[in-house]
Amino acid sequence: MLNDFWETAPPAYKYTVFAGMGLTFIGIIIIVIGAVTTTPSMTFIALPIIGVGLLAHMVSMGLRGRNIRKELKAAEKREAARKAGNQ
């Protein structure tokens, strides 16, 4: 495989990666605003948002792993079929 993974990645992986990055970024911004304005409740509001962002990242890693396993299995089948055809 000479293609970059991002080029061949499924859309679900791309969406969950961007959702995770976005939610984590929003949570960090809320924490910074809460720290600057000395509003402790904002920091506690941002923690679940960051948590959901991290969970989205973990889900995207699972999607990526599943896709890679599927691609490897298909490549092994193609290789076996090619070897069987040559004999």
Rank of each mutant, 00 (worst) to 15 (best):
G53S: 13
P10D: 11
A74R: 00
N86M: 14
M1Q: 12
I26L: 07
G20E: 02
I33D: 03
M21P: 03
G51K: 10
V17Y: 01
V32L: 15
P11W: 06
G53R: 11
L47V: 08
R82W: 10
G65H: 09
A35N: 00
P10T: 15
S60V: 05
M21N: 07
L54T: 13
N86Y: 14
V59E: 10
I50Y: 06
V32K: 12
A81D: 01
N67C: 09
I28S: 08
P10L: 13
V32N: 10
I49E: 02
K73T: 06
D4K: 13
P48M: 04
A9G: 02
G27I: 05
S41L: 15
A81R: 01
P10W: 14
K14T: 00
A80C: 03
S41I: 12
V17R: 03
W6N: 06
V59L: 14
N86G: 12
A74K: 01
L47Q: 05
N67Q: 13
L72T: 00
T39G: 07
F44Y: 06
I30R: 11
R82N: 06
G27H: 05
A80R: 01
N67W: 10
F18G: 09
Y15M: 11
P10S: 15
A80S: 03
D4A: 15
G62H: 07
H57M: 13
N86H: 15
T38D: 14
K73G: 04
A35T: 04
G65S: 15
T38Q: 14
Q87L: 13
A46W: 04
G51W: 11
F18W: 15
L2Q: 13
A84T: 04
R82C: 09
